[in-house]
């Protein structure tokens, strides 16, 4: 079930217009799963390198590892 949920989340992320998504956006891909449980699944996706975090310092978002940082001009520096 967790593998299925993972692939649904990843499918969702890949089809979004925005490169960065909030946690509750990700949860929309698996509406039947409690958010506390969804958190564990998302943790696994991060640990497996399928998703990565992006933070404004005050809030955190999720993105694909292939996406750059907020400031594309900074790309060379990261």
């Amino acid at each position: 079930m967790s593998e299925d949920a993972k692939s649904r989340i990843m499918e969702f992320v890949k089809t979004q217009k925005k490169s960065k998504l909030y946690f509750n956006d990700l949860c929309k891909a698996v509406p039947e799963i409690k958010m506390m449980q969804a958190k564990k699944i998302v943790n696994e996706l991060v640990n497996e390198g399928q998703l990565k975090y992006w933070s404004s310092g005050s809030t955190t978002m999720y993105m694909l590892p292939s996406e750059g940082d907020v400031d594309k001009e900074e790309k060379g520096m990261n």
């Binding site: 310092g57 940082d69 900074e74």
Partner: peptide, 14 residues
Amino acid sequence: WKHGGIVGVLGYGG
């Protein structure tokens, strides 16, 4: 100063 989205070490979101 400019902001950057880096968040942490491997596996940490903060």
